[in-house]
Design a protein around this nucleic acid. Structure first.
Lengths: 136, 136
DNA sequence: TTGCCCGTATACGTTAACGTAAACGTAAAG
DNA sequence: CTTTACGTTTACGTTAACGTATACGGGCAA
């Protein structure tokens, strides 16, 4: 259990060790530290030791999702930094929106690729089943 | 135009040079040759020169689609080899079907990741627009 | 014939994303 | 008190997917 959890904001300030996160998300501690090197994470420290909170945990989850989508860590950084940055000026906002649309276009292309591939693999699987029936 | 195209199977036997394909799919010839090194392509040869046909062209298209989905070339190889291989024995077929299901599961996970990310990016874009209206 | 463009092969260089090893501190357990 | 477990930093190693450089050959337009 966690000492720094009041009855008011229970679990809101839950913290995690590096191995906690490594186990939960099935990655190595080396990888997590590497993401920090790349400025994708910036946990608090108690002395030398890294202390991760909910926000860090969420960012890690986003990083891994980005990786599953085939994005580089640099791209992942771009994306998740969109989530919590608040650009002030108009020009910046416009640029930002353009960036977002670009990403969305890529994702939609990917989604289409997935549909096609799923259909094709489905067809191949069917052929396999047909073949199996022939054999029996 | 192509010399070796009869009126019966027009374009069915169309061939392409390496730069043809490079231009069409916007990749370098180096990349295409590299895919051949990895046994993902195996064009005919006229002397030294590589001659690509429709099947090669299709395979290249599949390779690039796989890459867009974030698969490694090794994984891409596994996938596209499913399309034209005809496994004979039952054990092989079972293994094959298992492989296919595994791939499909990954793709469905990816599709879900995409939906979530699209939704989140959509929300961020909306926030940007709201912010823009405030500024005006 | 000379340059240029396309093709070839060989080979070394590069970047990303970690893996792995070494060397050390600390704290609980036997 | 020493082993075990977990944490740290530093640093070199590794794999994938090409990029880039070099050197060569063939065809063809000026």
């Amino acid at each position: 259990m966690n000492a720094n959890v009041s009855h008011l904001d229970r679990d809101a300030e839950a913290t995690f060790s590096i191995t906690d996160l490594a186990n939960e998300f099935d990655v190595t501690t080396r990888a997590i530290r590497f993401y920090e090197d790349q400025n994708l994470l910036s946990p608090k420290r108690r002395g030398q030791t890294r202390i991760y909170d909910q926000r860090d945990r969420t960012r890690l989850k986003l990083i891994l999702r980005g990786k599953r989508l085939g994005f580089s860590l640099a791209e992942v950084g771009e994306i998740i930094n969109m989530y919590d940055s608040e650009p002030g000026e108009k020009a910046q906002l416009d640029f930002f929106i353009a960036k977002i649309r670009e990403r969305c276009a890529m994702l939609k292309q990917q989604r289409e690729d997935i549909e096609v591939t799923l259909a094709e693999l489905g067809a191949v699987e069917k052929r396999c089943h047909d073949r199996l029936k022939e054999l029996k």
